[in-house]
């Protein structure tokens, strides 16, 4: 029964066949991201118009906090990972390749899992390891400028915190890749933006305008603000409240609800795929 649904050997074959078919595209994606990183770094840090004083100032900032990497690594991981995720079900885009993929003797669960392992774990892991090359490059450049930059080592919790965030966000784009395999990245991003926008509208304008006392945290803010929901939203205190609350709530919503839902729906969507 176990073998009927999940056979790790078959999953391994799926992974190998996928990597054999897409290695060039993956290599181009990783190289492209690295080149982009070098360009961003060059423009921001090594700009010829930048004075020595600026460099000293920036380098001091980064020396203490590795600020560049702290900003750049999450963007690199998210952009690279989500582009890869949007392409991971490449077989589903054409009818001939779709037939080939669906007819491969492996269970739907194995096909789904191998794609998830590839896009949520393996590829971002490779991206993270490759990022160390880029981090080494920036370290050497700073050394050339006479500063010793703090490394962003693989063991840094910052990396793994973002890796976790990536896995959560990726689940939505993974669902998009199964559901709408063509132009999946754009269509999923638009869908997510639409849903988030709608949620924020309902949350801010609806809930707080109708029931401003609903939340303990915003009740005091609401009392000091004018009665309009919109005006409440643009109060600086409320904005800072939102920025302090949303990241946590974001993770909670993803962790408790959206992630398992997205995973389950993506599996069911794959299971019901036809030509």
């Amino acid at each position: 029964m176990y073998d009927k649904h999940l056979n790790f050997q078959r999953m391994g074959h799926l992974l190998v066949s996928d990597l054999k078919n897409t290695w060039l595209r993956n290599l181009l994606l990783i190289s492209g991201l690295l080149v982009l990183g070098v360009l961003v770094f060059t423009v921001l840090v090594e700009d010829s118009s930048m004075t020595r004083q600026d460099v000293t100032y920036l380098a001091d900032q980064w020396r203490s906090s590795a600020k560049f990497h702290i900003s750049f690594f999450p963007a690199y991981l998210m952009v690279g990972g989500l582009i890869f995720t949007s392409l991971v079900f490449w077989e589903l885009r054409g009818s001939a390749s779709r037939q080939f993929f669906l007819a491969l003797p492996a269970t739907n669960l194995e096909k789904w899992m191998s794609k998830w392992v590839l896009s949520a774990l393996l590829f971002p892991l490779i991206l993270t390891v490759v990022y160390q090359l880029f981090a080494q490059y920036t370290y050497q450049r700073f050394l050339g400028m006479g500063f010793e930059m703090v490394h962003l080592p693989l063991s840094d919790p910052w990396i793994w915190q973002w890796f976790f965030m990536y896995v959560l966000v990726q689940s939505i784009f993974f669902l998009g890749a199964v559901w709408v395999p063509r132009f999946s990245l754009i269509r999923t991003a638009l869908m997510v933006a639409g849903v988030l926008g709608l949620c924020i509208l309902i949350y801010q304008f609806g809930l707080y305008t109708l029931m401003p006392a609903l939340s303990e945290e915003v009740r005091d803010l609401a009392a000091t603000a004018t009665t309009s929901g919109f005006q409440l939203c643009i109060e600086p205190e409320f904005q800072s409240y939102l920025s302090s609350q949303y990241p946590f709530r974001f993770k909670m919503i993803f962790g408790l609800f959206l992630f398992p839902m997205a995973m389950l729906i993506s599996y069911l969507k794959l299971k019901e795929k036809q030509l």
Binding site: K4, K20, N21, A96, Q99, A103, P105
Partner: peptide, 26 residues
């Protein structure tokens, strides 16, 4: 249900074939 045991025993060559960028042997 597309069970592997079934798909191992039922092979189709369709009119519009997809073949990956691999050699015949690979």
């Amino acid at each position: 249900d597309r069970e592997p045991a079934f798909l191992q025993d039922c092979f189709m060559i369709s009119e519009s074939m997809f073949l990956p960028n691999l050699t015949v042997w690979d």
